[in-house]
């Protein structure tokens, strides 16, 4: 799925997968920090996948 989305134009680094047990709070914090950092390094996603208002021609 990661391959597929990146194939259709989602930048590498925007999509993250992780397996975190409910007991691994520290891992959760670390992963979230890492993800937010990495995603902030990329430019804004140009509102891709965010619908704002109906498009009228």
């Amino acid at each position: 799925m990661k391959n597929f989305l990146e194939h259709t134009g989602i930048e590498p680094g925007r999509l993250h997968f992780s397996w975190i047990s409910s007991a691994e709070s520290t891992k959760f914090v670390d992963v979230v920090k890492k993800i937010t950092h990495e995603v902030k390094m990329l430019d804004p996603a140009n509102k891709r996948y965010v619908k704002t208002e109906p498009k009228v021609d």
Partner: peptide, 16 residues
Amino acid sequence: VTEIESMDAEEKWNYF
């Protein structure tokens, strides 16, 4: 597919 794989993210997005 191989051809698209060689594009960068922006080109891929625009292609689709």
